[in-house]
Design a protein around this nucleic acid. Structure first.
Lengths: 151, 151
DNA sequence: TGATATATAGGAAATTGTTCCGCATCTGGG
DNA sequence: CCCAGATGCGGAACAATTTCCTATATATCA
């Protein structure tokens, strides 16, 4: 799908605050509500705009530990990989998972209540799928956290 | 702020889809509009619920490269750290930044259009603040990406 | 240029968000 | 055990927003 300058402005506004009214967005992008509404609808249909969600205060809700997990594995067969990906997708503690180029095979971002909960997660994961080497990096401070793309 | 079982159900619904109507949320949590509205308002005031945003398709918008950047530094003075944090917060390519415990001092998640854009970001960053050692991990595949907490 | 397609602004109808009010439930003090 | 005050609930009224329609303007291409 082709995204023009007006679409981009709308996306910037939506990223900033998805709860504002169409009139406000229209004013911000210098248009009126109908074209804005049509453009948003098209971008939703095309999948450019995905879920609409809220960002919660993790610490206020008791999620006080964030780990980045670096995984190396010697297994690279399809069957193993499918089980591994399935395990990651099913575990809600895993907020992000990427397959990497190079030395390290995967990186995960894991949000848990505390170190003990991380250990429980870790034990459960390695009992499900064999991995060669795991390094956990513990976050001491979340300096920045946004989901906005730099449009 | 104290969060009870109903609040938690509301948060789960909001994380799943922040665009649904109050009536739908009320039905999902087994309550009616008014209490749901009051609870949401209180949680917003308390900061438990932060921004409301949309998740965009990064690839469709031309952001085809994601890097995780591991940073070691020998500098740990307040002045240096302030400049470093400021630089990270000002750069929109940096979607996440954490200060870590242990060997590696910081981890960043950086979203850019391509490898060249990453290099430009990298050069700009190290010219602003001196860092000892930088490792960039390139994502080949985003296996999972959610901002939902495992409530 | 003229015909066609596409995007726009404004407004009406339907839906949703917000507020108010009476009622039920819970809590702590006598 | 009972009462007064506080708190939370559901329903209804009102305000605002979304959604859709129509007429007009703008761009496109032969």
């Amino acid at each position: 799908m082709k995204i023009d300058a007006t679409d981009r402005k709308i996306l910037i506004e939506l990223q900033r605050d998805a709860a504002q009214s169409l009139d406000d967005i229209a004013k911000a992008v210098g248009s009126s509500k109908t074209p804005v509404w049509n453009r948003i609808r098209k971008m939703k249909e095309a999948g450019v705009i995905g879920a609409q969600t809220v960002l919660l205060d993790a610490e206020a809700l008791g999620f006080e530990a964030t780990f980045f997990v670096l995984i190396r594995t010697s297994e690279h067969e399809a069957e193993w990989q499918n089980r591994f990906l399935k395990a990651l997708r099913e575990r809600p503690e895993v907020q992000e998972a990427h397959r990497l180029a190079g030395d390290i095979d995967y990186i995960l971002k894991v949000r848990v209540r505390n170190a003990r909960a991380y250990d429980a997660f870790y034990q459960a994961l390695i009992s499900e799928v064999k991995v060669h080497n795991v390094t956990a990096l513990l976050s001491m401070e979340e300096i920045k956290a946004t989901v906005a793309l730099p449009l």
